[in-house]
Design a protein around this nucleic acid. Sequence first.
DNA 1: TGACAAAACGGAGCAGCGCTCCGGATAGTA
DNA 2: TACTATCCGGAGCGCTGCTCCGTTTTGTCA
Lengths: 198, 198
Amino acid sequence: MAAEGPGGDSPPRSKRADAQRNRETVLTAAAEVFATSGVDAPIRQIAARAGVGMATIYRHFPTRADLVTAVYQHQIEACAEAGPNLLARADSPLDALHQWTDLFVDFLVTKHGLADALQSDSDRFAALHAYFLDRLLPVCAQLLDAAVEAGDIRPGTQPYELMRGIGNLCIGRDDDPRYDPRRLIALLLQGLQRPQGT
Amino acid sequence: MAAEGPGGDSPPRSKRADAQRNRETVLTAAAEVFATSGVDAPIRQIAARAGVGMATIYRHFPTRADLVTAVYQHQIEACAEAGPNLLARADSPLDALHQWTDLFVDFLVTKHGLADALQSDSDRFAALHAYFLDRLLPVCAQLLDAAVEAGDIRPGTQPYELMRGIGNLCIGRDDDPRYDPRRLIALLLQGLQRPQGT
DNA sequence: TGACAAAACGGAGCAGCGCTCCGGATAGTA
DNA sequence: TACTATCCGGAGCGCTGCTCCGTTTTGTCA
């Protein structure tokens, strides 16, 4: 979908050609800077790389969350769409949940500081948080429900809590061999499974 | 005048009286400010509250991590000492691990932004991170080992990973009724338990 | 007690950041 | 070509972390 701020459809008012061009330029530059300096990189740095003024960035993306959202939109979307596909193709709903989680974690871990931003207790990234929830929560809920239905995991877990938990576990330096979020998330899912007895 | 300040034992030659006094004043002010504005509160604010200049704070606590560590030292210590006690008194090592985890989580959750700081990928809080690890990792390892020994949980989990996982799960606003780190940590420990059958 | 050096203090000052404001440039249209 | 709505750029403000240095306080020794 068109990258619009939350608020919905705007009339087919097309922007001026230079504005359109600058928007793309900024997105490209932001993606590069985020990859090297993390999503907290100074706006000035992104502006310099894009060869535009700061106001241009703020005009297109009023908050940092809007910019981050726009940069990663495609990947978030891909992650959302993968959910139903995995559910259809995997051996079991539990298996699908595992695979989807792996996908989600891979995405978060490879984006420097993205997981941190998502769970930050400041409100700077509220819009990003909202977008993630809006797109991925239903997917996670669907997978969870299917696994419950199949009797693989016990009912009662809230998708929101699980998603935030997974996101939280992804926080931190990604170059520490002593800490691999995947192992902990595997434990978490293990704990979710219905015990054989009782 | 044998009044020796708490904390590490330093050689007999100590600081001037006014320095000692200011150190305490700053610690008190910092504790108050941290409680209301979080551990990221501006140094100026703490200085103003303590009625001292900023340089005084930097002189006593070169980095923010040093200040935070000093403020929470007693509570961290208490948490560390509780480990062996719980192990001795609880019904089982697994039970002790649960109780200790609760203690740890309660501590983290009630300190605004402390968990965030602990896992921040910036190096600003490296000293704090190191202190936590130094004091609490052995305790966690002891509890974990005991539980493994008792056959309650399966071997192979690294204490470092578990501690970081617990810390990570505590990150975020603490006023969200939809997210309770305790529930997820319970799941994590559940996943750690040795399966009864097969 | 008074003098004096070491220790500690305080805040001005610099640099880096987010974000805004407004004079000037530009694109689309008549 | 002329005109206007749209868009642009960067100077500027306020807020931060952290340092530097002239001033004040403390402890000691004559």
